[in-house]
Design a protein around this nucleic acid. Structure first.
Lengths: 133, 133
DNA sequence: GCAATTGACAGTAATGATTCTAACATGATA
DNA sequence: TATCATGTTAGAATCATTACTGTCAATTGC
């Protein structure tokens, strides 16, 4: 576990390992609060500051990506491979979409921007929200 | 001006007309505060509540769309035609991209969601931020 | 035309997410 | 061991947003 994250080049404290452990293989795209709540069980003194600090460290090392999908709160995705998201407009559940789309921009559309990347979000209603009415 | 917005089916008060006037042909994707500041010149008693209420009314009538691009604050786009956005990762400037991409999802990728729409964001560095270093 | 209802307004309070701060603890290094 | 950098913590501060309240103006039914 420790070996796995050694190349992150950040100090691996117990709190950070707990956060990393919670994020590992986590497909739920948790918010800072979700992470806080989960890690609180192991570390009752955990504070939000530590969660945010750790997320910031992981983000800057490119080990976690911040999702802007949910207005009002950030959500975090430990899967940094290229993929897209599908979000339920009712319950805000997010699922991953692994498919490549060709959406390159021709020079005349970039307004002089240096393009670095893109992301695609799909919106809809998930099965359980749809069947609830 | 009034005629133009009559079909909105909302009461057209002077404050609302000022907001509508500011939004008309506005390509800056303003935040609630941008709108508040702009309209404050005409209506020194304007309050944030009125800005948010009006935006909510316009949104529910489908006359404005809320952008989730900028984490920490919502931004609003009076252009409701289908288009995408390119955002500067430094200054958060947003420019419109008018181009159609074919990004439909095949049935096996939807996880049972009823798909309603999608949006594409491009990320990069705008000319002035790039030349600043 | 006149009360009653509705909707909008401004101001303010409350909330929720995030960031900041200062004190303390810990670990690595010399 | 002493020093230094970094991480943790609790709480305060901040920012965007939402909710609430009393007031007022426009609109409706009579």
């Amino acid at each position: 576990m420790i070996d796995k994250y050694r190349d992150l080049q950040i100090k691996l404290t117990p709190q950070r390992l707990a956060i990393l452990g919670f994020l590992e293989n986590n497909r739920s795209h948790p918010s800072a609060e979700d992470i806080y709540r989960a890690v609180l069980k192991q570390f009752p003194t955990m504070s939000f500051a530590t969660v945010y600090n750790t997320l910031e460290a992981l983000k800057s090392k490119g080990n976690v990506q911040e999702l802007k999908i949910d207005p009002g709160k950030k959500r975090y995705d430990p899967d940094i491979s290229r993929h897209h998201h599908l979000i339920c407009m009712k319950c805000k559940n997010i699922v991953d979409i692994f498919k490549d789309f060709d959406i390159s921009l021709s020079e005349d559309l970039t307004s002089g921007f240096d393009i670095i990347g893109n992301s695609i979000e799909f919106y809809g209603i998930c099965r359980s929200c749809g069947s609830r009415k």
